[in-house]
Amino acid sequence: MKNFKPWLPAMLSIIILLIFLGVWHLATLPTQGTIDPNLDPEYAKLLGASAAVGQKSTMPTPADVLDKLWVNVKDPFYDHGTNDKGIGIQIAYSLARVSLGFGLAALVAIPFGFLIGMSPLLYKALDPFIQVLKPISPLAWMPLALYTIKDSAISAIFVIFICSIWPMLINTAFGVSTVRREWINVARTLEVKPLRMAFKVILPAAAPTIMTGMRISLGIAWLVIVAAEMLVGGTGIGYFVWNEWNNLSITSVIVAILVIGIIGMILDLLLGKVTKWVSFKE
């Protein structure tokens, strides 16, 4: 493979972005709708601008979205009552929920995955359960959680927990079970105690795989939070989306999508850094 200049990928990204924005802008440009000459101005006043002008598309242009984004980012922490808080506060709520649900899942999944990985028998016995529970959508868990837990805040966290536990569990188990035999054999010949072997040999060897599982899980947790908050409501970025959808404000929904994406990327980058830090080169 030929080497390329280091600035080339960044430049390519920017070009792709510009093309995308350009297409978007052209596609959503307000068609000079013909104003119906018979339309009663009194009547037109009662309608939305787009309906009155006879414009088909209500898709916002990139400029609209940037405007809205600026409005939201300018004052992210305002609090106009229970149902109207700034986007910063909403994100903080969502992040708190995610870290709680994800943290609990990690606390359960990693030790448990370790055990399963050490014992091929357990691995095989539990595999069907994990495979059945893994693909269940967060929205399917929600009614059950609301009904049994009887608290919507805890239900939301439970749903994040139950959805983000599986990738971590599977990856931990897989990582632990595939540690190279030679390393374990060497440790055995040196008469290393089991607990010490677990922490000094197996854990470091399996760490990169475990971290990969955690990254997948955190991604899932961030996906789930939006769905859960849309359903349960109250606070969070998911509620923000729902509230703006309620007002059919596609502009704000796109802003929220952008924000959700960026936060998700930051979370993944952070865990990526940790992964680099725990893995070692042979």
Binding site: L146, L231, W242
Partner: peptide
């Protein structure tokens, strides 16, 4: 006064004493 997403949710939240 708390805005709620749907009728099933408001029912469950009311039954759960939230």
């Amino acid at each position: 006064v708390v805005k709620t997403a749907g009728w099933a949710v408001i029912r469950d939240k009311a039954i759960n004493k939230e």
